[in-house]
């Protein structure tokens, strides 16, 4: 099995087989970022396809083969930004208001509650401002380091730190059980 460096070099020399290997190896990786930011299977799929078209056309300009995952992350994130800005709307959230996003602690089944919680987490994430959502997705879903996020999003390291913190605080507020429900439990 070829290493990433070998695959990238082969792609730079025009090997379609190597490009296929690269796509199959990194498509889910790219999809995770796009899905986290856009919140829709179809939009995320379109973005991943566009991202790999860009990779095919620009791979010769990639100097450091090991930086490929970060480079791909940058392409996907930029495309997501463009998609959200062009559509002029926030990603689709099934629930209408932030109040609806608060976790409901009442329910007959634990499994149902767990499912509901996951749904709530995703909806809360999609309700974050785009800049905040991007850094949280890159950090917590994709696992990039702060310096990699700074590189991908094109912002200073200090801004990455503050955005991640503000995003998590907002998420925690959105996902906090309502006071009435807490009182009802007692």
């Amino acid at each position: 099995m070829s290493t990433l460096q070998e695959i990238i070099r082969a792609c730079q020399h025009g090997s379609t087989e190597a490009f296929e290997q690269l796509v199959r190896q990194y498509q889910q990786y790219a999809f995770k970022i796009a899905y986290g930011i856009l919140g829709s299977d179809r939009d995320a799929e379109d973005t991943v396809q566009e991202a790999f078209i860009a990779v095919y056309r620009q791979i010769k300009s990639l100097r450091n083969e090991e930086a490929f995952p970060t480079w791909l992350g940058k392409i996907v994130t930029n495309l997501c930004f463009r998609k959200v800005q062009n559509s002029g709307k926030r990603p689709t959230v099934p629930l209408d208001s932030i109040e609806d996003l608060r976790i409901s602690n009442t329910g007959p089944e634990e499994a149902y509650l767990a499912l509901e919680l996951k749904q709530d987490v995703h909806n809360a994430l999609l309700n974050l401002p785009l800049d905040y959502r991007v850094v949280v997705v890159l950090r917590d879903i994709q696992g990039y380091s702060y310096s990699e996020i700074a590189d991908i999003a094109g912002i200073p390291l200090g801004t990455v730190k503050s955005r991640i913190h503000q995003a998590r605080t907002l998420l925690a507020d959105l996902l906090q059980p309502t006071r009435n429900e807490e009182e009802g439990e007692r």
Binding site: Q28, V48, F52, L125, I141
Partner: peptide, 21 residues
């Protein structure tokens, strides 16, 4: 909240990206 986001399930990408690209 960080733990909840980290365990968020991302569906698998099922389409044939390579052929489409």
């Amino acid at each position: 909240v960080t733990g909840l986001v980290r365990t968020l399930e991302i569906p698998p990408l099922e389409s044939d990206v390579f052929s489409y690209v």
